[in-house]
């Protein structure tokens, strides 16, 4: 690769890498929560040590 290509290559993949990582993290964080299962209300309470 020429010097210009190396510079362009570094710039392109660095900017793109950060943008895509950010996009992926946001897509994961903002993912809509699944519908709560109907049986959840009848589940026994968690053990005390798990709640503390």
């Amino acid at each position: 690769m020429t010097r210009t290509h190396r510079r362009m290559h570094r710039l392109v993949w660095t900017v793109l890498g950060i943008a895509v990582a950010l996009g992926l993290a946001m897509a994961l964080a903002l993912r809509p929560a699944p519908a709560a299962p109907l049986v959840s209300a009848s589940l026994p309470p968690a053990p005390a040590e798990a709640r503390s």
């Binding site: 993949w13 793109l16 943008a19 895509v20 996009g23």
Partner: peptide, 9 residues
């Protein structure tokens, strides 16, 4: 690289 970014998203 652009194609890869678009594919991930």
């Amino acid at each position: 690289y652009g194609a890869y970014g678009l594919a991930v998203m």
